[in-house]
Nucleic acid binder design. Structure first.
Length: 569
DNA sequence: GCCGTTTTCGGCCCGACTGTTTTCAGTCG
Protein backbone atom coordinates (compact mmCIF):
# COMPACT_ATOMS: atom_id res chain seq x y z
CA UNK A 1 0.00 0.00 0.00
CA UNK A 2 1.34 3.39 -0.96
CA UNK A 3 -1.16 5.26 1.19
CA UNK A 4 1.23 6.16 3.98
CA UNK A 5 4.06 7.07 1.63
CA UNK A 6 1.87 9.43 -0.35
CA UNK A 7 0.45 10.94 2.83
CA UNK A 8 3.98 11.51 4.09
CA UNK A 9 4.99 13.23 0.86
CA UNK A 10 2.04 15.60 1.07
CA UNK A 11 2.68 16.28 4.75
CA UNK A 12 6.32 17.09 4.04
CA UNK A 13 5.28 19.38 1.21
CA UNK A 14 2.85 21.10 3.55
CA UNK A 15 5.52 21.64 6.16
CA UNK A 16 8.02 22.96 3.67
CA UNK A 17 5.36 25.39 2.43
CA UNK A 18 4.81 26.38 6.02
CA UNK A 19 8.47 27.09 6.62
CA UNK A 20 8.60 29.06 3.38
CA UNK A 21 5.50 30.91 4.61
CA UNK A 22 3.66 30.08 1.46
CA UNK A 23 -0.08 30.62 1.07
CA UNK A 24 -1.38 29.23 4.39
CA UNK A 25 -4.46 27.80 2.72
CA UNK A 26 -2.45 25.86 0.24
CA UNK A 27 -0.34 24.64 3.15
CA UNK A 28 -3.44 23.41 4.92
CA UNK A 29 -4.85 21.85 1.80
CA UNK A 30 -1.80 19.57 1.62
CA UNK A 31 -2.01 18.70 5.31
CA UNK A 32 -5.71 17.90 4.96
CA UNK A 33 -5.03 15.73 1.96
CA UNK A 34 -2.31 13.89 3.92
CA UNK A 35 -4.73 13.21 6.75
CA UNK A 36 -7.49 12.12 4.41
CA UNK A 37 -5.16 9.64 2.70
CA UNK A 38 -3.93 8.27 6.02
CA UNK A 39 -7.51 7.69 7.05
CA UNK A 40 -8.45 5.74 3.92
CA UNK A 41 -9.51 2.19 4.45
CA UNK A 42 -8.69 1.17 0.91
CA UNK A 43 -5.54 0.83 -1.09
CA UNK A 44 -5.05 4.15 -2.86
CA UNK A 45 -3.76 2.39 -5.96
CA UNK A 46 -7.10 0.66 -6.34
CA UNK A 47 -8.94 3.94 -5.88
CA UNK A 48 -6.68 5.47 -8.53
CA UNK A 49 -7.22 2.57 -10.94
CA UNK A 50 -10.96 3.01 -10.63
CA UNK A 51 -10.67 6.77 -11.14
CA UNK A 52 -12.16 7.62 -7.76
CA UNK A 53 -9.36 9.79 -6.33
CA UNK A 54 -11.45 12.95 -6.65
CA UNK A 55 -14.04 11.42 -4.33
CA UNK A 56 -11.54 11.66 -1.46
CA UNK A 57 -12.31 14.87 0.43
CA UNK A 58 -9.53 17.38 -0.12
CA UNK A 59 -8.25 15.82 -3.35
CA UNK A 60 -8.80 18.01 -6.39
CA UNK A 61 -7.38 18.18 -9.87
CA UNK A 62 -3.81 18.95 -8.88
CA UNK A 63 -3.43 16.48 -6.04
CA UNK A 64 -5.06 13.77 -8.13
CA UNK A 65 -2.34 14.31 -10.70
CA UNK A 66 0.36 14.21 -8.03
CA UNK A 67 -0.98 10.97 -6.58
CA UNK A 68 -1.01 9.37 -10.01
CA UNK A 69 2.51 10.66 -10.55
CA UNK A 70 3.63 8.99 -7.32
CA UNK A 71 1.96 5.70 -8.22
CA UNK A 72 3.58 5.79 -11.65
CA UNK A 73 7.08 6.98 -10.79
CA UNK A 74 7.44 6.60 -7.01
CA UNK A 75 8.04 10.33 -6.73
CA UNK A 76 6.39 13.72 -6.93
CA UNK A 77 8.57 16.07 -8.98
CA UNK A 78 7.35 19.21 -7.23
CA UNK A 79 8.39 17.74 -3.90
CA UNK A 80 11.81 16.64 -5.13
CA UNK A 81 12.38 20.16 -6.48
CA UNK A 82 11.26 21.94 -3.34
CA UNK A 83 13.32 19.64 -1.14
CA UNK A 84 16.47 20.81 -2.91
CA UNK A 85 16.11 24.30 -1.50
CA UNK A 86 16.13 23.07 2.11
CA UNK A 87 18.60 20.98 4.08
CA UNK A 88 17.51 17.38 4.70
CA UNK A 89 17.09 17.60 8.46
CA UNK A 90 14.95 20.72 8.56
CA UNK A 91 11.64 18.83 8.78
CA UNK A 92 13.06 16.96 11.75
CA UNK A 93 13.27 20.28 13.62
CA UNK A 94 9.50 20.66 13.40
CA UNK A 95 9.08 17.50 15.42
CA UNK A 96 10.69 19.14 18.42
CA UNK A 97 7.90 20.42 20.68
CA UNK A 98 7.85 24.22 20.85
CA UNK A 99 9.73 24.49 17.56
CA UNK A 100 7.27 25.38 14.83
CA UNK A 101 7.80 26.54 11.25
CA UNK A 102 8.65 30.12 12.21
CA UNK A 103 11.27 29.12 14.72
CA UNK A 104 12.73 26.51 12.38
CA UNK A 105 13.08 29.12 9.66
CA UNK A 106 14.58 31.61 12.08
CA UNK A 107 17.12 29.08 13.33
CA UNK A 108 18.06 28.16 9.80
CA UNK A 109 18.27 31.74 8.52
CA UNK A 110 20.24 33.05 11.47
CA UNK A 111 22.43 30.13 12.46
CA UNK A 112 22.20 27.67 9.56
CA UNK A 113 20.82 25.09 11.97
CA UNK A 114 19.67 22.15 9.82
CA UNK A 115 18.68 19.38 12.22
CA UNK A 116 18.15 18.48 15.85
CA UNK A 117 21.81 17.64 16.45
CA UNK A 118 22.78 21.08 15.14
CA UNK A 119 20.20 22.72 17.36
CA UNK A 120 21.50 20.90 20.36
CA UNK A 121 25.10 21.95 19.80
CA UNK A 122 24.06 25.55 19.05
CA UNK A 123 22.31 25.66 22.42
CA UNK A 124 25.34 24.15 24.14
CA UNK A 125 27.54 26.84 22.62
CA UNK A 126 25.14 29.55 23.73
CA UNK A 127 24.53 30.66 20.15
CA UNK A 128 20.77 31.04 20.55
CA UNK A 129 21.03 33.95 22.95
CA UNK A 130 21.10 37.24 21.12
CA UNK A 131 18.71 36.07 18.38
CA UNK A 132 15.79 38.46 18.05
CA UNK A 133 12.76 37.08 19.87
CA UNK A 134 14.56 34.26 21.67
CA UNK A 135 15.37 34.64 25.33
CA UNK A 136 16.19 32.42 28.28
CA UNK A 137 12.73 30.88 28.66
CA UNK A 138 12.40 29.97 25.00
CA UNK A 139 15.80 28.28 25.07
CA UNK A 140 14.69 26.34 28.13
CA UNK A 141 11.51 25.23 26.34
CA UNK A 142 13.41 24.15 23.25
CA UNK A 143 15.91 22.21 25.38
CA UNK A 144 13.05 20.38 27.08
CA UNK A 145 11.52 19.79 23.64
CA UNK A 146 14.74 18.17 22.41
CA UNK A 147 14.80 15.67 25.26
CA UNK A 148 11.16 14.81 24.53
CA UNK A 149 12.01 14.37 20.86
CA UNK A 150 14.91 12.10 21.73
CA UNK A 151 12.79 10.07 24.13
CA UNK A 152 10.69 9.39 21.03
CA UNK A 153 7.45 9.45 22.95
CA UNK A 154 5.41 6.85 21.16
CA UNK A 155 1.71 6.43 21.14
CA UNK A 156 0.30 4.12 23.79
CA UNK A 157 -2.23 1.34 23.28
CA UNK A 158 -5.86 2.16 24.01
CA UNK A 159 -5.90 -0.08 27.07
CA UNK A 160 -2.98 1.79 28.68
CA UNK A 161 -4.55 5.13 27.83
CA UNK A 162 -7.72 4.16 29.68
CA UNK A 163 -5.69 3.31 32.77
CA UNK A 164 -3.93 6.67 32.70
CA UNK A 165 -7.20 8.51 32.09
CA UNK A 166 -8.87 6.77 35.00
CA UNK A 167 -6.04 7.76 37.32
CA UNK A 168 -7.06 11.37 36.60
CA UNK A 169 -10.83 10.95 36.25
CA UNK A 170 -11.30 9.18 39.59
CA UNK A 171 -9.70 11.76 41.90
CA UNK A 172 -11.21 14.67 39.96
CA UNK A 173 -14.79 13.45 39.68
CA UNK A 174 -15.35 13.51 43.44
CA UNK A 175 -14.08 17.06 43.92
CA UNK A 176 -16.67 19.54 45.16
CA UNK A 177 -17.63 21.79 42.29
CA UNK A 178 -17.18 19.16 39.56
CA UNK A 179 -20.60 18.85 37.94
CA UNK A 180 -19.64 16.75 34.95
CA UNK A 181 -16.48 15.10 33.77
CA UNK A 182 -15.63 13.22 30.62
CA UNK A 183 -12.64 12.13 28.66
CA UNK A 184 -12.46 13.50 25.13
CA UNK A 185 -10.01 13.40 22.25
CA UNK A 186 -8.87 10.25 20.50
CA UNK A 187 -9.49 8.28 23.70
CA UNK A 188 -13.21 9.01 23.46
CA UNK A 189 -13.05 8.13 19.77
CA UNK A 190 -11.38 4.91 20.95
CA UNK A 191 -8.54 4.97 18.48
CA UNK A 192 -6.30 1.94 18.84
CA UNK A 193 -3.34 4.09 19.85
CA UNK A 194 -3.45 7.32 21.81
CA UNK A 195 -0.93 10.14 22.04
CA UNK A 196 -2.29 12.19 24.90
CA UNK A 197 -5.27 12.26 27.21
CA UNK A 198 -7.96 14.95 27.16
CA UNK A 199 -10.29 15.61 30.06
CA UNK A 200 -13.26 17.96 30.08
CA UNK A 201 -14.93 19.21 33.25
CA UNK A 202 -18.01 21.30 33.97
CA UNK A 203 -17.56 23.56 36.96
CA UNK A 204 -18.31 27.07 38.16
CA UNK A 205 -14.93 27.14 39.88
CA UNK A 206 -12.36 26.52 37.16
CA UNK A 207 -9.39 27.92 39.09
CA UNK A 208 -9.82 25.43 41.92
CA UNK A 209 -10.17 22.52 39.51
CA UNK A 210 -7.06 23.58 37.63
CA UNK A 211 -5.17 23.74 40.88
CA UNK A 212 -6.21 20.21 41.87
CA UNK A 213 -5.48 18.88 38.44
CA UNK A 214 -1.96 20.25 38.27
CA UNK A 215 -1.14 19.07 41.81
CA UNK A 216 -2.16 15.42 41.46
CA UNK A 217 0.62 13.11 42.67
CA UNK A 218 1.25 11.48 39.29
CA UNK A 219 1.95 14.88 37.71
CA UNK A 220 5.62 15.38 37.13
CA UNK A 221 5.64 18.55 35.10
CA UNK A 222 3.14 21.34 34.45
CA UNK A 223 3.43 22.32 30.79
CA UNK A 224 0.80 25.05 30.83
CA UNK A 225 -1.63 26.28 33.41
CA UNK A 226 -4.23 28.87 32.64
CA UNK A 227 -7.53 29.78 34.22
CA UNK A 228 -9.58 27.22 32.25
CA UNK A 229 -7.01 25.06 30.49
CA UNK A 230 -3.94 23.23 31.73
CA UNK A 231 -1.55 20.61 30.43
CA UNK A 232 0.66 18.34 32.49
CA UNK A 233 3.02 15.46 31.91
CA UNK A 234 2.88 12.37 34.12
CA UNK A 235 5.85 10.50 35.52
CA UNK A 236 5.44 8.11 32.58
CA UNK A 237 5.89 11.00 30.17
CA UNK A 238 2.26 11.09 29.08
CA UNK A 239 0.66 14.46 28.37
CA UNK A 240 -2.76 15.10 29.89
CA UNK A 241 -4.82 18.17 28.97
CA UNK A 242 -7.68 19.39 31.12
CA UNK A 243 -10.23 22.01 30.29
CA UNK A 244 -13.04 23.48 32.38
CA UNK A 245 -16.20 25.00 30.89
CA UNK A 246 -19.62 26.20 32.06
CA UNK A 247 -22.51 23.78 31.96
CA UNK A 248 -24.20 25.43 28.99
CA UNK A 249 -21.06 24.89 26.93
CA UNK A 250 -20.49 21.24 27.83
CA UNK A 251 -21.82 19.77 24.58
CA UNK A 252 -19.96 22.24 22.41
CA UNK A 253 -16.74 21.73 24.33
CA UNK A 254 -17.10 17.95 24.25
CA UNK A 255 -17.66 18.08 20.50
CA UNK A 256 -14.70 20.36 19.97
CA UNK A 257 -12.41 18.48 22.34
CA UNK A 258 -13.32 15.06 20.96
CA UNK A 259 -12.44 15.91 17.38
CA UNK A 260 -11.15 14.64 15.10
CA UNK A 261 -9.70 17.83 13.78
CA UNK A 262 -10.94 17.26 10.24
CA UNK A 263 -14.35 16.36 11.59
CA UNK A 264 -14.53 19.63 13.52
CA UNK A 265 -13.45 21.65 10.53
CA UNK A 266 -16.13 20.15 8.35
CA UNK A 267 -18.80 20.71 10.98
CA UNK A 268 -17.77 24.34 11.34
CA UNK A 269 -17.89 24.81 7.60
CA UNK A 270 -21.42 23.43 7.52
CA UNK A 271 -22.32 25.81 10.34
CA UNK A 272 -21.00 28.78 8.39
CA UNK A 273 -23.22 27.89 5.47
CA UNK A 274 -26.15 28.07 7.84
CA UNK A 275 -24.95 31.46 9.13
CA UNK A 276 -23.89 29.86 12.40
CA UNK A 277 -20.58 29.82 14.19
CA UNK A 278 -19.35 26.89 16.31
CA UNK A 279 -16.64 27.20 18.89
CA UNK A 280 -16.00 25.32 22.12
CA UNK A 281 -18.52 27.50 23.99
CA UNK A 282 -21.50 26.90 21.82
CA UNK A 283 -23.22 27.54 18.52
CA UNK A 284 -23.87 31.20 17.81
CA UNK A 285 -26.00 33.13 15.35
CA UNK A 286 -24.26 36.48 15.31
CA UNK A 287 -23.59 37.01 18.98
CA UNK A 288 -26.62 35.07 20.15
CA UNK A 289 -26.03 31.68 21.81
CA UNK A 290 -28.31 29.13 20.18
CA UNK A 291 -27.02 25.75 21.45
CA UNK A 292 -24.18 24.10 23.32
CA UNK A 293 -25.42 22.23 26.39
CA UNK A 294 -25.50 18.84 24.68
CA UNK A 295 -23.76 17.45 21.62
CA UNK A 296 -27.10 16.15 20.36
CA UNK A 297 -28.69 19.58 20.07
CA UNK A 298 -25.75 20.81 18.01
CA UNK A 299 -26.00 17.95 15.52
CA UNK A 300 -29.73 18.59 15.28
CA UNK A 301 -29.21 22.28 14.63
CA UNK A 302 -26.80 21.41 11.82
CA UNK A 303 -29.44 19.16 10.28
CA UNK A 304 -27.90 15.80 11.02
CA UNK A 305 -28.19 12.73 13.21
CA UNK A 306 -26.08 12.29 16.32
CA UNK A 307 -22.69 10.92 15.25
CA UNK A 308 -21.02 8.50 17.67
CA UNK A 309 -17.49 9.57 18.69
CA UNK A 310 -15.94 6.47 17.09
CA UNK A 311 -17.18 7.59 13.67
CA UNK A 312 -15.92 11.17 13.82
CA UNK A 313 -13.06 10.96 11.35
CA UNK A 314 -14.58 12.68 8.32
CA UNK A 315 -14.61 9.51 6.28
CA UNK A 316 -18.17 9.78 5.04
CA UNK A 317 -20.07 9.80 8.34
CA UNK A 318 -21.08 13.47 8.12
CA UNK A 319 -22.69 12.97 4.72
CA UNK A 320 -24.62 9.92 5.97
CA UNK A 321 -25.68 11.74 9.13
CA UNK A 322 -27.21 14.50 7.01
CA UNK A 323 -29.25 11.87 5.21
CA UNK A 324 -30.12 10.13 8.48
CA UNK A 325 -28.49 6.91 7.31
CA UNK A 326 -25.79 6.19 9.85
CA UNK A 327 -25.35 2.58 10.96
CA UNK A 328 -26.55 1.75 14.48
CA UNK A 329 -23.24 0.75 16.03
CA UNK A 330 -22.81 -2.42 18.01
CA UNK A 331 -22.52 -2.08 21.80
CA UNK A 332 -21.02 -4.36 24.40
CA UNK A 333 -24.52 -5.36 25.54
CA UNK A 334 -25.09 -6.92 22.12
CA UNK A 335 -22.47 -9.62 22.74
CA UNK A 336 -23.91 -12.95 23.83
CA UNK A 337 -20.74 -14.94 24.12
CA UNK A 338 -17.06 -15.33 23.47
CA UNK A 339 -15.86 -17.75 20.80
CA UNK A 340 -12.14 -17.84 21.51
CA UNK A 341 -10.84 -18.65 25.00
CA UNK A 342 -8.29 -20.98 26.54
CA UNK A 343 -8.46 -23.15 29.63
CA UNK A 344 -5.94 -24.99 31.74
CA UNK A 345 -6.21 -27.86 29.24
CA UNK A 346 -3.73 -25.93 27.08
CA UNK A 347 -2.04 -22.68 28.15
CA UNK A 348 -4.88 -20.96 30.02
CA UNK A 349 -4.84 -20.21 33.75
CA UNK A 350 -8.35 -21.36 34.66
CA UNK A 351 -10.43 -24.50 34.42
CA UNK A 352 -13.35 -24.88 32.07
CA UNK A 353 -15.73 -24.50 34.96
CA UNK A 354 -14.04 -21.29 36.12
CA UNK A 355 -14.14 -19.87 32.60
CA UNK A 356 -17.84 -20.76 32.32
CA UNK A 357 -18.72 -18.99 35.55
CA UNK A 358 -16.75 -15.94 34.48
CA UNK A 359 -18.74 -15.94 31.23
CA UNK A 360 -21.97 -16.00 33.24
CA UNK A 361 -20.82 -13.02 35.30
CA UNK A 362 -20.12 -11.25 32.01
CA UNK A 363 -23.76 -11.86 31.06
CA UNK A 364 -22.96 -14.35 28.29
CA UNK A 365 -25.07 -17.29 27.26
CA UNK A 366 -22.22 -19.21 25.68
CA UNK A 367 -18.46 -19.49 25.75
CA UNK A 368 -16.28 -21.54 23.44
CA UNK A 369 -13.22 -23.07 25.08
CA UNK A 370 -10.84 -23.27 22.14
CA UNK A 371 -7.59 -24.71 23.39
CA UNK A 372 -4.54 -25.04 21.16
CA UNK A 373 -4.04 -28.01 18.87
CA UNK A 374 -1.42 -30.75 19.25
CA UNK A 375 1.34 -29.25 17.10
CA UNK A 376 1.61 -26.14 19.22
CA UNK A 377 3.58 -27.90 21.93
CA UNK A 378 4.89 -24.62 23.34
CA UNK A 379 1.32 -23.78 24.31
CA UNK A 380 0.62 -27.30 25.55
CA UNK A 381 -1.56 -28.16 22.56
CA UNK A 382 -4.03 -31.03 23.04
CA UNK A 383 -3.43 -34.50 21.63
CA UNK A 384 -6.35 -36.37 20.11
CA UNK A 385 -6.49 -38.51 23.24
CA UNK A 386 -6.75 -35.43 25.50
CA UNK A 387 -9.56 -34.10 23.35
CA UNK A 388 -11.85 -36.93 24.36
CA UNK A 389 -11.25 -36.23 28.03
CA UNK A 390 -11.76 -32.53 27.53
CA UNK A 391 -15.01 -33.16 25.71
CA UNK A 392 -16.28 -35.25 28.62
CA UNK A 393 -15.33 -32.54 31.08
CA UNK A 394 -17.26 -29.96 29.06
CA UNK A 395 -20.33 -32.22 29.10
CA UNK A 396 -20.00 -32.51 32.85
CA UNK A 397 -19.72 -28.74 33.32
CA UNK A 398 -22.66 -28.15 30.98
CA UNK A 399 -24.79 -30.46 33.14
CA UNK A 400 -24.25 -28.06 36.05
CA UNK A 401 -25.08 -24.91 34.10
CA UNK A 402 -28.46 -23.54 33.20
CA UNK A 403 -28.00 -20.07 31.74
CA UNK A 404 -24.81 -20.64 29.81
CA UNK A 405 -23.44 -23.27 27.47
CA UNK A 406 -19.80 -24.21 27.04
CA UNK A 407 -18.96 -24.95 23.42
CA UNK A 408 -16.40 -27.61 22.61
CA UNK A 409 -13.82 -25.82 20.49
CA UNK A 410 -10.25 -25.64 19.29
CA UNK A 411 -7.84 -23.10 17.98
CA UNK A 412 -6.31 -25.32 15.34
CA UNK A 413 -2.91 -24.40 13.96
CA UNK A 414 -2.52 -23.67 10.26
CA UNK A 415 0.79 -25.26 9.24
CA UNK A 416 3.38 -23.81 6.90
CA UNK A 417 1.64 -25.28 3.85
CA UNK A 418 -1.89 -24.31 4.85
CA UNK A 419 -2.77 -27.72 6.28
CA UNK A 420 -4.55 -28.07 9.63
CA UNK A 421 -3.18 -29.66 12.76
CA UNK A 422 -6.11 -32.10 13.22
CA UNK A 423 -7.64 -34.31 10.51
CA UNK A 424 -11.19 -33.65 9.33
CA UNK A 425 -12.61 -36.63 11.32
CA UNK A 426 -11.47 -34.88 14.49
CA UNK A 427 -12.39 -31.35 13.39
CA UNK A 428 -15.98 -32.31 12.61
CA UNK A 429 -16.51 -33.30 16.25
CA UNK A 430 -16.08 -29.73 17.53
CA UNK A 431 -18.92 -27.26 18.04
CA UNK A 432 -16.62 -24.56 16.83
CA UNK A 433 -13.25 -24.49 15.07
CA UNK A 434 -10.99 -21.47 14.98
CA UNK A 435 -7.94 -21.61 12.74
CA UNK A 436 -4.85 -19.50 13.18
CA UNK A 437 -1.29 -19.03 12.02
CA UNK A 438 1.31 -19.26 14.79
CA UNK A 439 4.52 -19.73 12.86
CA UNK A 440 6.19 -18.99 9.55
CA UNK A 441 5.32 -15.28 9.79
CA UNK A 442 8.21 -14.40 7.51
CA UNK A 443 6.91 -16.31 4.52
CA UNK A 444 6.09 -14.41 1.35
CA UNK A 445 2.80 -12.60 1.03
CA UNK A 446 1.65 -15.16 -1.56
CA UNK A 447 2.44 -18.10 0.66
CA UNK A 448 0.83 -16.62 3.78
CA UNK A 449 -2.25 -15.70 1.79
CA UNK A 450 -2.39 -19.18 0.31
CA UNK A 451 -2.30 -20.74 3.80
CA UNK A 452 -5.26 -18.64 4.90
CA UNK A 453 -7.26 -19.29 1.75
CA UNK A 454 -6.71 -23.01 2.17
CA UNK A 455 -7.81 -22.89 5.80
CA UNK A 456 -11.02 -21.08 4.79
CA UNK A 457 -11.65 -23.86 2.28
CA UNK A 458 -11.91 -26.48 5.03
CA UNK A 459 -15.59 -27.09 5.67
CA UNK A 460 -15.06 -27.43 9.43
CA UNK A 461 -13.20 -24.14 9.97
CA UNK A 462 -15.64 -21.48 11.17
CA UNK A 463 -13.43 -18.55 12.08
CA UNK A 464 -9.93 -17.32 11.19
CA UNK A 465 -8.33 -15.93 14.31
CA UNK A 466 -6.05 -12.84 14.59
CA UNK A 467 -5.82 -12.73 10.80
CA UNK A 468 -2.89 -10.34 10.43
CA UNK A 469 -0.79 -11.64 13.31
CA UNK A 470 0.36 -8.33 14.69
CA UNK A 471 1.37 -8.12 18.33
CA UNK A 472 1.99 -4.71 19.87
CA UNK A 473 5.69 -4.09 20.53
CA UNK A 474 6.61 -7.59 19.34
CA UNK A 475 5.83 -7.97 15.68
CA UNK A 476 4.11 -6.16 12.87
CA UNK A 477 1.27 -7.57 10.88
CA UNK A 478 2.50 -10.06 8.32
CA UNK A 479 1.79 -9.37 4.69
CA UNK A 480 -1.38 -10.84 3.31
CA UNK A 481 -3.64 -10.11 0.38
CA UNK A 482 -6.57 -9.03 2.48
CA UNK A 483 -8.91 -8.57 -0.45
CA UNK A 484 -8.32 -12.14 -1.59
CA UNK A 485 -9.04 -13.36 1.94
CA UNK A 486 -12.27 -11.36 2.07
CA UNK A 487 -13.42 -12.90 -1.19
CA UNK A 488 -12.60 -16.40 0.03
CA UNK A 489 -14.20 -15.81 3.44
CA UNK A 490 -17.38 -14.62 1.78
CA UNK A 491 -17.47 -17.54 -0.67
CA UNK A 492 -16.84 -20.19 1.99
CA UNK A 493 -18.92 -18.64 4.81
CA UNK A 494 -15.88 -18.30 7.03
CA UNK A 495 -15.90 -15.50 9.63
CA UNK A 496 -12.91 -13.36 10.53
CA UNK A 497 -12.00 -12.51 14.08
CA UNK A 498 -11.60 -9.21 15.83
CA UNK A 499 -9.18 -10.35 18.49
CA UNK A 500 -9.85 -8.00 21.43
CA UNK A 501 -6.69 -8.80 23.33
CA UNK A 502 -5.32 -5.29 24.00
CA UNK A 503 -1.95 -5.98 22.41
CA UNK A 504 -3.50 -7.46 19.29
CA UNK A 505 -6.65 -5.65 18.13
CA UNK A 506 -6.53 -7.77 15.01
CA UNK A 507 -8.41 -7.23 12.70
CA UNK A 508 -8.34 -3.45 13.08
CA UNK A 509 -10.98 -0.81 12.40
CA UNK A 510 -10.35 -0.33 8.71
CA UNK A 511 -10.20 -4.08 8.08
CA UNK A 512 -13.63 -4.29 9.72
CA UNK A 513 -15.10 -1.65 7.51
CA UNK A 514 -13.81 -3.41 4.42
CA UNK A 515 -15.10 -6.76 5.65
CA UNK A 516 -18.53 -5.31 6.31
CA UNK A 517 -18.67 -3.77 2.85
CA UNK A 518 -17.91 -7.18 1.38
CA UNK A 519 -20.51 -8.93 3.51
CA UNK A 520 -17.99 -10.96 5.53
CA UNK A 521 -19.07 -11.79 9.09
CA UNK A 522 -16.89 -10.99 12.08
CA UNK A 523 -16.53 -12.48 15.54
CA UNK A 524 -15.45 -10.35 18.50
CA UNK A 525 -13.37 -12.63 20.71
CA UNK A 526 -10.95 -12.06 23.56
CA UNK A 527 -8.48 -14.94 23.21
CA UNK A 528 -8.68 -15.06 27.02
CA UNK A 529 -6.06 -17.06 28.87
CA UNK A 530 -7.63 -16.27 32.24
CA UNK A 531 -10.99 -15.14 33.58
CA UNK A 532 -9.90 -11.50 33.83
CA UNK A 533 -9.16 -11.36 30.12
CA UNK A 534 -12.84 -11.72 29.25
CA UNK A 535 -13.22 -8.03 30.08
CA UNK A 536 -11.09 -7.16 27.07
CA UNK A 537 -14.17 -7.54 24.88
CA UNK A 538 -14.64 -3.78 25.31
CA UNK A 539 -11.57 -3.17 23.15
CA UNK A 540 -12.85 -5.44 20.41
CA UNK A 541 -16.14 -3.56 20.59
CA UNK A 542 -14.18 -0.30 20.23
CA UNK A 543 -12.53 -1.62 17.06
CA UNK A 544 -15.87 -2.82 15.72
CA UNK A 545 -17.54 0.53 16.34
CA UNK A 546 -14.71 2.38 14.65
CA UNK A 547 -15.16 -0.08 11.79
CA UNK A 548 -18.84 0.94 11.44
CA UNK A 549 -20.13 -2.51 12.50
CA UNK A 550 -23.67 -3.12 13.70
CA UNK A 551 -24.78 -6.10 15.74
CA UNK A 552 -25.87 -7.78 12.47
CA UNK A 553 -22.28 -7.86 11.23
CA UNK A 554 -21.07 -9.81 14.25
CA UNK A 555 -21.61 -13.54 14.75
CA UNK A 556 -21.51 -13.67 18.52
CA UNK A 557 -24.44 -11.31 18.94
CA UNK A 558 -26.66 -14.21 17.83
CA UNK A 559 -28.49 -16.48 20.27
CA UNK A 560 -26.80 -19.87 20.47
CA UNK A 561 -29.18 -21.75 18.18
CA UNK A 562 -28.93 -19.14 15.43
CA UNK A 563 -25.17 -18.92 15.87
CA UNK A 564 -24.71 -22.65 15.27
CA UNK A 565 -26.87 -22.44 12.15
CA UNK A 566 -25.06 -19.36 10.88
CA UNK A 567 -21.57 -20.86 11.09
CA UNK A 568 -22.56 -24.06 9.30
CA UNK A 569 -20.76 -24.41 6.00
C1' DG B 1 -4.86 23.80 -3.40
C1' DC B 2 -9.86 22.90 -2.60
C1' DC B 3 -14.64 23.84 -3.16
C1' DG B 4 -19.96 25.39 -4.08
C1' DT B 5 -28.49 24.49 -1.33
C1' DT B 6 -25.41 32.31 -1.45
C1' DT B 7 -20.19 31.39 -5.04
C1' DT B 8 -16.46 28.36 -10.97
C1' DC B 9 -14.00 33.22 -7.67
C1' DG B 10 -13.10 34.37 -3.22
C1' DG B 11 -13.32 32.61 0.52
C1' DC B 12 -10.98 28.98 3.61
C1' DC B 13 -12.39 26.74 11.89
C1' DC B 14 -11.44 28.75 16.17
C1' DG B 15 -9.48 29.88 20.57
C1' DA B 16 -6.10 29.26 24.97
C1' DC B 17 -1.64 29.88 26.74
C1' DT B 18 3.17 31.48 26.55
C1' DG B 19 6.95 34.54 26.01
C1' DT B 20 8.42 38.68 24.60
C1' DT B 21 8.61 42.77 20.96
C1' DT B 22 4.12 46.39 25.85
C1' DT B 23 0.30 44.87 21.81
C1' DC B 24 1.03 40.43 19.52
C1' DA B 25 3.17 36.42 17.12
C1' DG B 26 4.05 31.60 17.67
C1' DT B 27 2.63 27.11 18.96
C1' DC B 28 -0.67 23.81 19.94
C1' DG B 29 -4.85 21.17 19.74
Amino acid sequence: MLNLKIAETFRNLSQLFEIRQDNPFRTRAYERAAQAIEGLNEDIEIIAQEGRLREIPGIGEDLERKINEFIGTGKVRAYEELKKSFPDGLLELLRVPSVGPKTAKLLYDELRIQNVAGLESAIAKGKLKGIFGIKEKTIENITAGISLFKAGKERMPLSVAWQVAESFLKPLQDLPGVKKISCAGSLRRQKETIKDIDILIVSEKPQKIMHHFTSLPQVQEVIASGSTKSSVRTDDGIQVDCRVVMEKSFGAALLYFTGSKNFNIKLRQIAIRKSLKINEYGVFRGKAFVAGRKEGEIFKLLGMEYIEPELREDTGEIELARKGKLPKLITQDDLRGDLHTHSSWSDGNHTIQEMAHAAIRQGYSYIAVTDHSQGLTIANGLSVKDLLKKKREIEKVNNTLRRCKVLYGTEVDIDSQGGLDYPDEILKEFDIVIAAIHSGFKQSKEKLTHRMLKACDNKYVHIISHPTGRLWGTRNAYEIDFDAILTQAKDTNTALEINSFPLRLDLNDSHCRRAKERGVKLAINTDSHSIEHLQAARFGIAVARRGWLTSKDVLNTLPLGELLKAINK
